[in-house]
Amino acid sequence: MISAVIFDLDETLFARTSSLKAFAEDQLNNQYPNVFPTPSHVVARLLELDNRGKSSKYKVYQTLFKEFGIDDQNLAAELYDHYMRNAWRFAMPFEGLNEAFSEIRALGAKIGIVTNGRTDIQLRSLLALNLDRLADDYIISEAVGLRKPDAKIFQLAAGNLSVRTEDCVFVGDSPTADVSGAQTVGMKSVWFPNGAIWPTDLPIRADAEIQSLSELSGVLKAF
């Protein structure tokens, strides 16, 4: 019996790369239109440097200015500050999120979220997508001093929902942080890759794989 479905946030519920692209296009074409001669090239490079959220945005902007030959680190810091204050306004969910949540509720299961990252940044994304109200509980790694794939953060998530780990399904895009971490505590795992690549040296496999949130209901019913 599935008692809870727990999700990763970035690139699982929150279409992070698409949202960042929309923000960067607005920033460089509309808010700061004269900084770079070819904003489209800069947006593409920004997404590369971002590396699916693994890189510091401050360093990303500093690197962009250096690579494109603009000697103004104060302006780079200003663009970074603009990102910190405004990027959340462009947050968008993956298609099918609300429907997937409704189907989970229809199964009688609870909904949780576990995300790695800074509390201020991740909380803005959660609030922008109304996930603080749609989910029964959410955990941000910095706030609890734990990070996926640490087993303790998955156990904490199950405990907060008052369910057993073996009665949970975890959905995420990261093979190591999400799939492997969840399986360590006995959760079933669903891999939602969204461009992520499965490491050749990772010996385990996810219990299921989906290409869209609309496929999740069928997977849950099959467990």
Rank of each mutant, 00 (worst) to 15 (best):
P33K: 03
F36N: 07
V60I: 11
N29V: 00
F65R: 06
F14M: 04
Q31H: 15
T12W: 01
Y32D: 01
N34S: 13
R45P: 05
R16Y: 02
T63R: 14
S56H: 14
A44W: 01
T38Y: 11
N30D: 15
L47W: 06
L13P: 04
V42F: 04
Y61M: 09
P33W: 05
S40K: 14
N34E: 12
L28W: 02
L47C: 06
A15G: 03
S18F: 08
D26G: 08
A15M: 02
Y32C: 01
K57Q: 08
T17I: 11
N29S: 11
F23Y: 12
L47S: 04
A15S: 10
A15W: 05
Q31R: 15
S56V: 09
S18M: 09
A22V: 04
N51V: 00
A44S: 14
R16G: 02
E48K: 14
Q62E: 11
D50R: 00
K59L: 12
T38V: 13
S55H: 05
P33A: 03
S40V: 13
L64I: 08
E48V: 13
R52N: 13
P37I: 15
S19N: 00
D50H: 08
L64F: 07
K54E: 15
V35D: 06
T17C: 02
K66D: 08
L28Y: 03
R16S: 02
S55C: 10
S55F: 08
D26P: 04
V42G: 04
E25G: 10
S40I: 12
R52W: 06
A15E: 02
H41C: 11
L20H: 03
L49V: 11
Q27F: 03
T17N: 08
V35P: 10
Q27W: 05
T17Y: 04
L47Q: 05
T12F: 05
P33C: 04
K21I: 06
L46H: 10
T38G: 00
S55G: 00
N34F: 09
A44V: 10
